[in-house]
Design a protein around this nucleic acid. Structure first.
Lengths: 240, 240
DNA sequence: TGGTGGTGACTAAGCGCATAGTTATTCGCT
DNA sequence: AGCGAATAACTATGCGCTTAGTCACCACCA
């Protein structure tokens, strides 16, 4: 009837290489061992079955606790989700912000670095990344807004790097907004299909996507009338 | 308690431009008007709130029917989901298969055509596409496998087009598997963010992504040791 | 040393509500 | 009249969260 047919139990997931990643080092260090273990179990359940198909029992089962134990450490299931998504978003932002800092590097090197590292991060933490990208609908409106703010800031960082290269002539006269969106799209989509056990290591994929990013900013947009170099909209958003 | 806090009701969604698309012309023509209207309502609910956060009442409310009416036309909620996902996958496959057929066209033109149309399709049907890509976990294992088969066939079509260009010298000696995956990644990810009301029309986006695809197969992979032209794995999968 | 009280983590049991699906009945069309 | 479509009322079950109580551990003091 109302059974949520979660196809994978926490026990299954713990051993499944498909859902292995490095998300356990994302959690706030001030948290105790048990809450962090709960987050690690939860992120796997949410990634595999979705937020709504995951029960509080599933999460606790993953760390050999019973249902009520979750509420010793978290006030609600939604807050477990929020903690995961907030942590994920803040970590990536801090990570790439540090990388984008050295203005001394060439625009191409800067783009290569930021794209490869952003990609690596999403590959290495693909289970958490999946939850961060595809389970936003489980958040309350307030929490959702909070996360959205971080996402916008992340976008701004990338757009600034691309716009710099266009401005100083390192890149072609591409559409900054569109091209940046495509680059991010590639990395974000990793959460949908990437597995650590596969044939691509996070580093290899990072290099590969950085190459693609460079190709995107180096090719001449075929003259087909369309694709203005920097339309008003995009220009308005660069360096806000 | 067990409230699934579906944030948007069917009534909200019907008017929201955010969830407007052309998915209503996907359904099997042999179905009656009511079942097709139910699918259209369901696809919006699933896309906005997720399969598990959507109640059968939500779906029916969207076409001004009461709860039980759904079971006059479909045996279960899961089958509604399956019908949507199956229809979506079959339509795209049939669509691009027709396009990839004319072997007379140049490899570049063939790639341009197939990528731009695939992208357009995902933009035009982004609500259904979102369900097709992100709600697979709601399917029973049997239905899931059935869908997976169609997905594999779709991938094969694209890989064949890219491999042909590499073989006849139109494209650089790129890694067919990886590059193809990246191209599909871009289009698939549309379901996550695209809106018909936005500033990019499906056609514009199709052209733009086709340009990017061409850039991907035209750039020289920087000699950094890595990225073999056609590794054993990829070679084995092209033309199976 | 051993008794006492306090504390935080955990469990077992279950409450109340919501949900997918069922059924007996009615509606409306030809 | 007769038949398919729709409804209202219902069942069975699962869910998030609560509650009462247990247990291990520690501080304090005689």
């Amino acid at each position: 009837m109302a059974r949520r047919q979660a196809r994978f139990t926490a026990q299954d997931l713990a051993d499944d290489p498909r859902w292995q990643d490095h998300s356990s080092d994302l959690w706030n260090k001030t948290l105790g061992d048990v809450p962090r273990a709960l987050l690690t179990s939860a992120v796997r359940c949410f990634a595999a079955n979705g937020f709504h198909a995951t029960t509080t029992r599933d999460i606790c089962e993953g760390v050999n606790l019973t249902a009520g134990a979750l509420y010793v450490h978290f006030p609600s299931k939604e807050l477990v989700l929020f903690e995961i998504i907030r942590a994920g978003h803040q970590r990536v932002l801090a990570y790439i912000r540090d990388l984008a800092a050295p203005a001394s590097a060439s625009s191409a090197d800067q783009l290569r670095t930021i794209i490869s590292r952003y990609t690596e991060w999403h590959a290495r933490h693909h289970v958490a990344a999946r939850v961060c990208q595809y389970e936003l609908a489980g958040l309350t409106p307030q929490h959702y807004d909070e996360v959205l703010e971080i996402r916008h800031e992340t976008n701004r960082v990338f757009r600034r790097v691309v716009a710099r290269g266009v401005a100083d002539g390192s890149f072609k006269q591409i559409d900054v907004k569109r091209v940046t969106r495509a680059m991010l799209s590639l990395s974000i989509d990793l959460g949908r299909w990437y597995r650590l056990e596969g044939s691509d290591s996070p580093e290899q994929l990072g290099e590969f996507y950085a190459d693609l990013a460079l190709a995107m900013v180096s090719h001449d947009a075929p003259v087909r009338g369309a694709v203005p170099a920097l339309d008003g909209d995009a220009a308005a958003r660069v360096r806000p």
